[in-house]
């Protein structure tokens, strides 16, 4: 059995989902609370841009002719999800880099003496910093398109496990948002988020306990949503798709991907984190250890989901 898409694509789909999902949740939290969580979109972008860049590198690595990757940006073929996705990825990374530069420029006090070249550069781009508001909205739209595209990419094919399955984009989006939230909670809990904020000129403000608690509740809801969509995806294939589709889920449920599916996606990615999250919400004080465990497991589960669907889809 020859696989055309291997681990590079698995990791890429996962990273793109985590990066887009993290900004998606951070932006929403900040907007819904009317700008009370300014540092969250920032942290999400600081993390997301490198993840997207590493993912893009993996994409190029996977190509049969790597040096021709630039051919992707000579055409805009909206009917091809891969063409659309390449542009989304490029724009997202560009907008992200610009936003990071603008945030960084804001960290310099006018007239402050640091490295003079850097502060000179900062003072040049600083007047544009007011564009961050608009750029955040653009980045939000791009993040939605980014996490949706990873699923559309697979469903616009003719492999029984992917082709024409409307719930596949939904499943990848649900997983992306869930893993994005997990990444945010993880970095906030470990203090890495504050470090990033400080490095880029923020005040390293502690995220209020309320917010963390609400994020815990949201994680639980997102996990349940993902579980429901996953069940829907399997049921769709089993009952509403073609005979080939119904046969194809055997790869996930009983076939070569069954261990990854039941052990990785269901147990590690959904059941254990959901139990942990539920338990830690019952006790008002959240145990740091259990939060760290559940978020790491959700992130791992996202990786397992991409592996099961991407590799399994090629084994039918």
């Amino acid at each position: 059995m020859i696989l055309t898409w291997k681990w590079e694509l698995v990791v890429y789909l996962w990273l793109a989902g985590v990066a887009g999902g993290a900004f998606f949740v951070a932006f929403l939290m900040d907007r819904i609370t009317r700008g009370k969580h300014e540092q969250l979109p920032k942290i999400a972008m600081f993390l997301g841009v490198p993840l997207v860049l590493v993912g893009s590198l993996l994409l190029v690595l996977d190509l049969g002719e790597q040096l021709r990757a630039w051919h992707l940006f000579t055409r805009l073929r909206l009917g091809s999800p891969m063409s659309a996705g390449s542009w989304i990825l490029l724009l997202y990374a560009l907008v992200g880099v610009v936003m990071i530069a603008l945030w960084w420029s804001k960290s310099f006090e006018p007239g402050e003496l640091r490295l003079s070249v850097l502060s000179g550069l900062a003072s040049v781009i600083r007047p544009a910093a007011s564009a961050i508001g608009i750029l955040s909205w653009i980045a939000f739209v791009l993040a939605v398109l980014l996490i949706a595209y990873t699923g559309v990419l697979l469903s616009a094919t003719n492999q029984p496990l992917w082709g024409g399955v409307l719930l596949l984009p939904a499943l990848f989006v649900a997983s992306a948002i869930s893993t994005g939230m997990a990444l945010l909670v993880l970095v906030l809990r470990t203090g890495f988020g504050r470090l990033l904020d400080l490095l880029f000129g923020g005040e390293g403000e502690r995220v209020p306990a309320d917010t963390l608690h609400a994020m815990g509740t949201a994680s639980l809801v997102l996990g349940i949503v993902e579980l429901v969509v996953l069940v829907g995806y399997i049921a769709w294939l089993a009952f509403f798709s073609t005979a080939a589709g119904a046969q194809a889920i055997g790869v996930l449920l009983t076939g070569p991907m069954s261990l990854v599916f039941w052990g990785g996606v269901v147990l590690v990615g959904l059941v254990i984190p959901l139990v942990l999250e539920f338990a830690s919400l019952r006790g008002r004080e959240m145990l740091v250890g259990s939060v760290l465990a559940s978020t790491s497991l959700v992130l791992l589960g996202g990786l397992f989901l991409r592996a099961a669907v991407l590799l399994g889809g090629q084994m039918v």
């Binding site: 949706a148 699923g151 469903s155 984009p169 939904a170």
Partner: peptide, 12 residues
């Protein structure tokens, strides 16, 4: 399929 992904992000 695009709609499915975007709607999931939007509603769910």
């Amino acid at each position: 399929q695009w709609l499915s992904g975007i709607l999931t992000a939007g509603i769910v």
